[in-house]
Design a protein around this nucleic acid. Structure first.
Length: 335
DNA sequence: AACGGTCTCAACCGCGGATGG
DNA sequence: CCCATCCGCGGTTGAGACCGT
């Protein structure tokens, strides 16, 4: 037996709200609130609407202090940052943007920001492609050598992920320490207003920025690990938890950030992920380059297998790479 | 001006979680 | 514990606006 409908659809009005309906709803809620019960509200307010519809109309449109209209660049950055960190948790993202609703942000992402990211990512080989919105205006463009990041408390790099210290992926990445990173290209994903957001002392700033090169990837990998039981148990079975679209965006972000600092990198992280999802390897191996099928390839174009496995560490040494994104990946990520 | 394709965004839908009897 | 009910969320839809030809 299916779930009972929340209201009798034959008796309620649907579609766009009229000014009169808006006025009735607004007046009622301003006088009495919703009484903790949206379902019974329409009857009391004299509206022929479903309670859920009333709730949505109030929250997304009639509620005071709702901000409509264009998003600022700062808001863009916050959305990108939080999306990178937590995915499509629109309500949480909305909580960071006063006056914006989750619906608004979701629509904005789907119609504008996603395209912005796609176009940025597709042209990421040009040096300034990602200057905005990914560049943090608050950071100084200073290269710092990376050091292992195991000393960073988890809460510093992702407030939404717990127990990152126990994450095996984290330590593997931390050992890959031969990168140099531009903080401004990384931190905005996590903290748009860094360093202001963190209110760090000078010493703490150094301590954190020295490892920031992989913070983004830490977050992403943890995100994957958390949501998809990432390693070998995915064997060809796509996660039902993480939507395809989100996977694509996350991988493109990772891809871009590798691309930013690895000369000759051509997108094989995405291929690696693809292969991983088909049971050819696992993410830890992919990142550390330790597995038989670590899928960051150099100079290879093997189909489904790593033709010349290497690691991000090797790529960081500016070894040339001519490998291409496998054609079979394209329908998967770009369909 | 007419037409067709694309984009936007308000609204809907269904699910999972929370809550209370 | 079970069940019913409600809430809140995220994905999807579709009408109208917009744009290019």
């Amino acid at each position: 037996m299916g779930r009972a409908p929340c209201c009798d659809k034959a008796k309620v009005k649907r579609g766009p709200w009229s000014p009169e309906e808006d006025s009735k709803l607004r007046d009622y809620i301003e006088k009495y609130g919703n009484g903790g019960n949206w379902i019974s509200l329409p009857l009391k307010a004299g509206l022929r609407r479903c309670g859920k519809s009333c709730r949505l109309r109030w929250l997304n449109y009639l509620r005071p202090n709702i901000k409509h209209g264009d998003f600022s660049e700062e808001e863009d950055r916050i959305i990108f940052s939080l999306f990178a960190a937590i995915g499509s948790r629109w309500s949480i993202i909305a909580a960071h943007l006063p006056g914006r609703t989750d619906n608004d942000i979701k629509n904005y992402w789907n119609t504008k920001l996603r395209k912005k990211l796609l176009s940025s990512s597709s042209s990421s080989h040009s040096s300034s492609a990602m200057a905005s919105p990914f560049q943090n205006p608050n950071s100084q463009d200073v290269k710092r050598p990376l050091t292992p990041s195991t000393t960073i408390p988890p809460s510093v790099y992702n407030p939404y992920v717990e127990n990152l210290d126990q994450n095996p992926i984290k330590s593997l990445i931390s050992n890959t320490n031969s990168f140099e990173a531009h903080d401004q290209q990384i931190f905005p994903f996590i903290y748009p207003n860094y360093p202001q957001d963190l209110s760090l002392s000078d010493s703490n700033k150094n301590y954190i920025t020295s490892t920031s090169g992989f913070l983004l990837n830490h977050n992403m990998c943890d995100h994957y690990n958390h949501h998809t039981s990432f390693s070998s148990d995915v064997h060809g079975k796509r996660s039902e938890i993480m939507p395809k679209q989100e996977e694509m965006m996350m991988m493109m972000m990772i891809d871009h950030h590798i691309d930013q600092r690895v000369k000759g990198y051509n997108g094989d992280f995405i291929q690696g992920y693809y292969n991983n999802c088909n049971g050819h390897g696992d993410l830890k191996q992919m990142i550390s380059g330790t597995g038989t099928n670590s899928n960051i390839n150099i100079g290879g174009s093997g189909s489904g297998s790593a033709s010349s496995s290497s690691s991000i560490s090797n790529l960081a040494e500016n070894k040339s790479s001519t490998s291409l994104l496998q054609p079979k990946c394209l329908p998967y990520f770009y369909s």
